[in-house]
Design a binder for these strands. Structure first.
Length: 308
DNA sequence: AACAGGGGCAACCGCCTAATC
DNA sequence: AGATTAGGCGGTTGCCCCTGT
C-alpha cells in the first residue's frame, strides 16, 4: 500500500543544524548524489527527517548557492517577477540562479516590502498606494482568500495587474518584466497574454549594465537543477554523474559579473573557505571523501582558484 | 555595561500534487 | 480505483544578533 513513511518522527532531531550534521549531509550527497531523501538520514547517519535534510541541502548547503544580499539587479528582478507571479517563490527563484525560494521569500518580507512601501508602492498589487486608501486592505483580502479561489483569481489577476501595473509602474523602475523570463508554465504563458511588446521591454533592458542571466541550467549542478523544479527522485544520477556535474560546473563556468563587477553566479567566498575547512576538519573521513569527490580535490589543490 | 526591542534568517509546519503500490 | 506517501511549496515561527537607550 502506497509508499513507506518518510520518517518515523520519534527521536528525530529538530532545530538548527550543527556543523557536524552539515558535514555528514554534504559528504553523503557528494558521494551518493541525491536519491530518495527518505533514505538519506539513515544512510548519512543523521537523526533528521528526510524533509529536513532536503531543506538544509537545497536552502543552505548546495554548492551552487550564492550567498549574501541580493544585488540591485536581482532585487529588481524579484520585484518584477513578483508582480507577475505573485508569491510563487519557487518560480521566482528559478529565474535567479543560485538563489533559493526561501531566501527570496525572506528577502522580500524583510527588505523589499519595506522598500516598496517607502516608495509608495503596494508590495502586493505593485501599484502606487493611493494616499486615501492606505490601510492594508487589499493585502489582507488577498491573503485570506481561500487558496483555490486565490489561484483562480491569480491567473486573471496576474494578467490584470501585470498589464495595469506596467502602465502605472512604467516610470522609474527598470522594467525587466517578462522579457527576462522564460516561463516554463504553460498556463502562465497563456495567462500572460500581455498587450505590451516584449521586444520593447527587451530593448529597455539595461543590457550594458547587466549580463543576461540565461545560465540557470548551466550553472546549477544536475542534482540541484532537478531539485528545485522537478522531483528529486527523478535525479537518478549516479554519483559519478553528479560529481562530474560539479567538476564541469566549477571548472568551466565563467561567472557573470554585474555592473559593480560582483560575481553574479559565484560561489560564496566564505563558503569556499568553509568547504576547505570542512575538508580539513573531516580528517578521518577526509581521505575517503576527497578520494570519492574530485571536486573537493580540485578545491583543495587550487587554493587560488579563480572564478573568472 | 546591561537591557529591551526589532530585524533578519534558518528551520519548521501544514497543505497540495504527483507518484507509487 | 483508492489509499498512502514523497517531494515541493508557501506561510509562519522562533532564535540569534544588532542597535538604541
Amino acid at each position: 500500500m502506497g509508499r513507506q513513511p518518510c520518517c518515523d518522527k520519534v527521536g528525530l532531531k529538530k532545530g538548527p543544524w550543527t556543523a557536524e550534521e552539515d558535514k555528514k549531509l554534504i559528504t553523503f550527497i557528494l558521494t551518493n548524489g541525491q536519491c530518495c531523501w527518505r533514505a538519506v538520514p539513515k544512510l548519512a547517519g543523521l537523526l533528521r527527517c528526510g524533509k529536513s535534510c532536503r531543506l538544509r541541502w537545497t536552502n543552505y548547503l548546495r554548492p551552487d548557492l550564492k550567498r549574501g544580499l541580493l544585488s540591485e539587479y536581482e532585487e529588481q528582478m524579484v520585484i518584477d517577477l513578483h508582480a507577475q507571479l505573485g508569491n510563487r517563490w519557487s518560480k521566482i527563484a528559478s529565474h535567479l540562479p543560485g538563489r533559493t525560494d526561501n531566501e527570496i521569500k525572506n528577502h522580500w518580507n524583510t527588505h523589499i516590502k519595506k522598500k516598496l512601501k517607502k516608495m509608495g508602492i503596494d508590495p502586493i498589487t505593485h501599484k502606487p498606494i493611493s494616499t486615501a486608501t492606505e490601510e492594508p486592505q487589499p493585502e489582507q483580502q488577498l491573503q485570506h482568500q481561500p487558496e483555490q479561489e486565490q489561484k483562480q483569481h491569480q491567473t486573471s489577476h496576474e494578467t490584470d495587474h501585470s498589464t495595469a501595473e506596467l502602465d502605472q509602474n512604467k516610470e522609474p523602475e527598470t522594467s525587466l518584466q517578462s522579457s527576462s523570463i522564460n516561463t516554463e508554465t504553460k498556463e502562465e504563458e497563456k495567462s500572460m497574454t500581455s498587450p505590451f511588446d516584449p521586444m520593447e521591454l527587451i530593448n529597455n533592458l539595461l543590457v550594458d549594465e547587466v549580463p543576461l542571466m540565461e545560465v540557470p541550467h548551466e550553472i546549477i549542478a544536475p542534482s540541484a537543477a532537478s531539485s528545485s523544479t522537478s522531483s528529486s527522485s527523478s535525479s537518478s544520477l549516479n554519483s559519478s554523474n553528479l560529481l562530474q556535474g560539479y567538476i564541469d560546473q566549477f571548472q568551466d563556468f565563467e561567472w557573470p559579473c554585474d555592473q559593480y563587477n560582483n560575481n553574479l553566479g559565484c560561489l560564496w567566498d566564505d563558503d569556499l573557505r568553509s568547504w576547505d575547512l570542512l575538508i580539513h576538519d573531516i580528517d578521518g573521513d577526509r581521505k575517503q571523501v576527497v578520494d570519492q569527490c574530485p571536486i573537493l580535490v580540485n578545491l583543495e589543490q587550487e587554493s587560488n582558484w579563480a572564478y573568472n
